[in-house]
Design a protein around this nucleic acid. Structure first.
Lengths: 218, 218
DNA sequence: TGTACATCAGTGAACGCGCGTTCACTGATGTAC
DNA sequence: TGTACATCAGTGAACGCGCGTTCACTGATGTAC
């Protein structure tokens, strides 16, 4: 049997996944502050110390959950783009991903913990996400003349590691991304509750407006 | 001496404010999960149980902090509007308010605690905030014809308790509000860190774009 | 102004709790020859 | 295929800790007459 597929290793990753699943459950139910290793262990059917075979500490577990969340979002967006979705399709994919597990969304885009610095690999996944976005926008024609902000984005392009992408495209990506999260974060945090309108329609309208603004004949 | 101004009452509110100030300090330094009553008491120069003369419980203290945050934002916006700020001025006022204490911002707009329901008075302040926004937008002429989403907002107008405001204005408020929070939450959570562009310029550009879209002669 | 009483801020000891984590161990699974 | 050894998942007892909170109290401040 190859090193990557021994029975022990398969078992390990199964248990590891189960632990994370229970952890996600707990976070979804009572928030991240209620995440307790002992409680998770009990749900998994294991004694508390047993968890330490899988995660070095509570922080370690949380970091893995954050990493998984990033990975999951990046994969969702990549898959969406690769199956032919345009920018609008991508927006809906992100929205569905977020709605599916709001606390997972907030694990990435919610309240930051002061002093916490994400490990290098999650910041890498985060740029991967932006890369998918840039790719999606690159398929669209660039409309309108450059603004002052576009010029400023020359430095941002260095970050993107892609010399060929026009500043106007980067500009549209950033604008799109922030607007997307504006609606999602307010909606998922419940700030529209009781306001008597459907956030889904606002979402759709904002998308339409975004594209209308870039129409050739405006 | 009148009932509202006895020395004892003045003292009480001073201590109460000091406690909250230390609590905010702790949250700003290490996040809300690190907020500990005993630690606060020590900073205030008081024994742990002493705090219970001022707050019934830890949750009570947090709720007050949230209420204060709402109140502070509403007052900031109201003051800004009353001193002649237009919609753009309002946006900058909110931005400055948020930048001044990001954790206070996230107390309102950050990760929600599942199952937590804000007390009635904070939801009232929250509508007060939207009312200021509506007032600011009401000073602007309504441009463009109604979209399908505008029609949907008839029910939202009931919520706003203002029959006279056009749906198109409500629409602009919601759009404006979500875009504002999109940039603020990503920026303050550090999601632009290292991306080599200035979030302030993105903010300014989004504002300019927002207004350009509504220009008469477009 | 003085005295008697009521209010209330703050203390110190004590509580039970559940947390994360360590340690020495048992027993099952895998590996080498 | 069988035996000897190594690996490693999981247990149970135990740890120290700091938490929120309670309680009976002391002493200072305010109120009434």
């Amino acid at each position: 049997m190859s090193a990557a597929g021994t029975a022990r290793e398969r078992y390990r990753s199964q248990v590891s996944e189960e632990i994370k699943a229970r952890a996600r459950e707990q976070i979804a139910t009572a928030g991240i502050s209620a995440l307790s290793l002992n409680a998770i262990a009990k749900h998994v059917g294991m004694s508390g110390p047993g968890l330490y075979r899988y995660f070095a500490s509570r922080d370690d577990l949380i970091t893995e959950l954050i990493r998984d969340a990033y990975r999951s979002l990046a994969d969702t967006m990549r898959a969406s783009l690769d199956t032919g979705a345009d920018v609008t399709g991508l927006a809906y994919a992100v929205r569905e991903w977020a709605a599916q597990d709001p606390q997972r969304y907030f694990l990435i885009y919610g309240t930051p913990v002061p002093g916490y610095h994400a490990p290098e690999d999650t910041t890498r996944i985060s740029s991967e996400i932006m890369a998918v976005l840039i790719e999606a926008f690159s398929a669209l024609p660039v409309e309108g003349q450059d603004t002052a902000f576009d010029a400023h984005l020359a430095s941002h392009r260095e970050w993107a590691y892609d010399d060929s992408v026009p500043e106007a495209t980067l500009h549209r990506c950033l604008s799109f991304w922030t607007r997307l999260h504006g609606i999602l974060s307010l909606e998922l945090a419940g700030h529209f509750t009781g306001m008597k309108f459907d956030p889904a329609l606002l979402f759709a309208d904002e998308l339409a407006t975004f594209h209308r603004a870039a129409e050739p004949g405006r």
